[in-house]
């Protein structure tokens, strides 16, 4: 069935195809992600001292960006999509950080 339908593909849909990574690149990304995860988990077994938490945050952000950029094609797709997502992400970060600060550091109980 797929062979009969295949010609239609050319006339329709994705014009971004040529930008898309190859499976090899995807696998490479996955290997990077695996290594980063291993590094993350190692903080549990090895003592990284004060840098442990900043390191974990950085690793988390890097993993996040790799998945979003490559697997979700943000790097290749329209910037509108990224804007949609990052608006939500930064709004969430800002609002909840503010709320947590108010709750933890400026409750009337402390006044």
């Amino acid at each position: 069935m797929s062979s009969t339908d295949a010609p239609e593909q050319a006339s329709s849909t994705d014009e971004h195809d040529d930008h898309h990574p190859t499976p090899r690149q995807y696998v490479n990304i996955a290997v990077v992600l695996a290594v980063l995860t291993a590094l993350e988990v190692s903080t549990y077994f090895l003592d990284f001292g004060v840098i442990a938490i900043p390191l974990l945050v950085i690793l988390m952000v890097v993993k996040f960006l790799y998945v979003a950029g490559w697997f979700m094609h943000l790097k290749f797709d329209s910037r509108v999509f990224g804007r949609m997502m990052y608006t939500g992400l930064f709004l969430a970060l800002g609002l909840y950080a503010l709320a947590i600060i108010v709750i933890l550091f400026d409750s009337a109980t402390i006044a």
Binding site: M84, M85, L91
Partner: peptide, 24 residues
Amino acid sequence: KLGMWTFLGSEFLFFGAFVSAYLL
């Protein structure tokens, strides 16, 4: 695709609230 991305943007506020409560 635009609709899905729009939805995902809103999902950050959903999970963000739960994560904030957890941290608190």
